[in-house]
């Protein structure tokens, strides 16, 4: 690996926090379905200081949004460190590499490499997908751009190489479940410096996964950030449990969400105020569950941090981080490594 003079691969805040041994916290910022940069600035202010870096999604769920590189550059101006998500769905290896060069030039230092949600789920299901390379090949490409100073074709850089802190995703409970720790191993071998997992609600199942991950020694080669997210309602929890692949939500959590809305059940037609109060109660419970999950995940050996995904609910990140005792976020000076 290309360790720079100060000992870092990229020198990003996320890398510094992890290298210093702090329990890291990342957030998520969804760019708008518009050309309006002010929404990024507003969301950035909500996340700034509540996490070490925030993922900027790349046309998430295959719905067209502002590009992650552009939105990331705006986040950076606001003082929020971005983790640029890059998928293989929309761009081939030429386009991805040129975006990485541009991202680095803008000051972006973290990337999360993904294969990308299939376009049939989004608002352009008629589109052609690319998938020139897959997520593991993408991890390797970005790592080699940094470490070997070469483009994917093997040509050397003629100047500054992009030094990115490279991340990858893991879906611990997707099928075939026995293969998942090994696929994580492939990502680590490809060069993934950090991992963000799919949302974890089932701590016991995740402990078993982490046992296998530790047996493979992967937690010593990469930083694993467990994915967490606050539930907004019992309906959201049901939908995720039933329809999202690899999503395990234990009955206990389902029941707690339902119980949170109990005072309003059997009341007949709910007024607008009732509905608002019920939604507030659900969300409060969702945040509480999320805080407890973080506390439990923190106890698992090999978990280096959490990735807090509050989808279209960026306001929730700060109270979650606060509740879990993660604030204030540590400051690690670049020279400290």
């Amino acid at each position: 690996m290309n360790i720079s003079a100060n000992g870092y691969l990229s020198g990003s805040n996320l890398e510094r926090v992890l290298r210093a041994g702090h329990f890291a916290a990342t957030g998520e910022l969804g760019p708008p379905q518009s050309a309006d940069g002010s929404t990024i600035r507003e969301k950035a202010q909500l996340l700034k200081g509540a996490c070490d870096a925030a993922n900027i999604t790349d046309n998430q769920t295959a719905i067209v949004r502002m590009s992650s590189v552009s939105a990331g550059a705006i986040a950076l101006q606001e003082g929020l460190e971005p983790v640029i998500q890059v998928t293989c769905r929309d761009r081939n290896r030429l386009a991805i590499q040129s975006d990485i060069l541009g991202a680095y030039a803008q000051g972006i230092r973290n990337i999360l490499a993904l294969s990308g949600d299939h376009q049939t789920f989004g608002n352009h299901p008629m589109a052609k997908n690319v998938h020139d390379i897959d997520s593991i090949q993408l991890v390797q490409m970005i790592a080699e751009m940094r470490d070997k100073k070469i483009f994917q074709c093997g040509d050397p850089f003629k100047g500054q190489e992009p030094c990115m802190f490279v991340g990858a995703a893991a879906a611990p409970f997707a099928h075939p479940i026995d293969f998942r720790p090994y696929r994580l191993g492939k990502k680590v071998n490809a060069g993934a410096n950090f991992i963000q997992t799919q949302l974890i609600y089932d701590i016991e199942a995740f402990k078993k996964y982490m046992e296998k991950v530790r047996a493979l020694g992967l937690h010593e080669k990469t930083y694993i950030l467990a994915g967490v997210g606050p539930l907004k309602s019992p309906a959201m929890a049901r939908y995720m449990r039933e329809s999202v692949p690899g999503m395990l939500i234990p009955d206990e959590i389902m029941n707690r969400m339902t119980a949170a809305g109990a005072p309003w059940s059997g009341k007949g037609e709910l007024t607008k105020e009732d509905k608002k109060a019920r939604s507030g109660a659900w969300r409060e419970t969702g945040i509480k569950i999320c805080v407890e999950l973080i506390q439990q995940l923190r106890e698992i050996e090999g978990v280096s941090g959490v990735h807090i995904m509050a989808i279209e609910w960026e306001e929730a990140v700060r109270p979650i981080a606060e509740g879990a005792g993660l604030l204030p976020r540590p400051v690690v000076e670049p020279a400290a490594a």
């Binding site: 293989c88 897959d134 090949q137 995703a169 879906a171």
Partner: peptide, 9 residues
């Protein structure tokens, strides 16, 4: 997704 290092999630 024509993955060569699948399966995805």
């Amino acid at each position: 997704k024509q993955l060569l290092n699948g399966p995805c999630g």
